[in-house]
Nucleic acid binder design. Structure first.
Lengths: 197, 197
DNA sequence: AATTTAGTGAACCAGTTGGTTCACTATAGG
DNA sequence: CCTATAGTGAACCAACTGGTTCACTAAATT
């Protein structure tokens, strides 16, 4: 008898709490990737999440806060510096992380990055720089410190070159860099620079 | 008597032809620099040019065409490769050109570049790439060919590094690179890369 | 001088936006 | 079961957009 009552219980139809938040974040990221940041609208995010704007504004006070939180949720922590890995492998790992971070999810994070750069001044730009670029550069600089004789004063410039190349790649109209292209940056640019000292 | 008639002749009040076109282009560039590409509107461009939207649409069929033409008018031709200059001076000249091109006029061209990168797919992005980045890279590659032993297959990567660094610089929230920073890219990155071979 | 051309300013249109409010109600918690 | 909470869907608002049209008229051309 109880088994029969369970079978016929109505299926929950409203998402609440974390489930709805998940759906909203997914919608933001999807919209960033498909229409870009400038054309991302709360109307469309709500529709894509299968909810209404009122639900968005219950949790976030404005659009920028929503997008920032969705990106914060999306962006992975940069990989730790693996002490046992070679310099080359370490550099490959950092640039592969950055490549994936920026360009996965149809380039949602890169879209946000470029849009932020085109919007002055921008908290979002600062946020993305501090959350993505700076950690990546710092880890690359750490690898240089551990494995090379590059002087302190030269490290920031070299550390920035990898990320710079990946972003330039996409600003020039290409898509996500391939593994081969990342290897070319490491082997053809970063490693030679380290050996030069 | 004739001198007297000249003094009292009415001053022309409506701009026509090239004068109005100039004013419109100036307004576009100013708006790109101040509100960025996403927020640039035909309403505001017309107002800033001291004219009406009808005058814009008489000449350009849409907003994108207007912006493209204004940028085409703004962007200077990259400096020719000076055969008598040293490699360092040649590289400095090309990167200084790129820096000025992208970041003068309150960064109007860079604004457009970043916005285009955030808008997929984009004719504007292709246009800017072909008009700005590609010529600069080609001239840098030519300098490498003239002055260094860098093999053919390595030149594109190295040639891209300078422009990449300048753009990354601004995407990270900084403004136009200083001469010192450009020199650092040349002396700390490009020249060492060339010597490595 | 008469005619043509292009500039002006205003009005118009449909569409969209970020943000707000509301009545209703599913859902969770007591 | 009752109460509180949060989700839903709709409606609303002022503002703004790209693009269009129009009557008038300054300016150029014939």
């Amino acid at each position: 008898m109880e088994a029969s009552a369970e079978v016929s219980a109505p299926v929950a139809s409203r998402r609440r709490g974390e489930a709805l938040r998940r759906a909203i974040f997914d919608a933001v990221i999807e919209q960033l990737g498909s229409v870009g940041y400038a054309k991302l609208s709360t109307n469309r995010v709500a529709a894509a999440a299968g909810t209404g704007k009122a639900a968005l504004y219950r949790r976030w006070s404005n659009k920028e806060e929503l997008v920032r939180d969705a990106l914060l949720d999306l962006l992975p922590e940069p990989p730790r510096v693996d002490l046992s890995a070679s310099l080359r492998d370490g550099l490959l790992a950092q640039l592969t992380y950055l490549n994936s971070t920026l360009f996965d999810s149809k380039g949602a994070a890169f879209q946000a990055f470029a849009a932020a750069a085109a919007d002055q001044p921008s908290e979002l730009r600062a946020f993305l720089h501090e959350t993505v670029s700076v950690p990546c550069q710092e880890r690359i600089a750490e690898l240089l410190r551990l494995h090379t004789a590059v002087p302190d004063k030269d490290r920031p410039l070299i550390a920035a070159a990898g990320p710079a190349m990946l972003m330039y790649h996409c600003m020039s109209g290409s898509l996500k860099s391939t593994d081969t292209q990342i290897e070319a940056v490491v082997d053809g640019l970063l490693l030679p620079l380290c050996r030069e000292r």
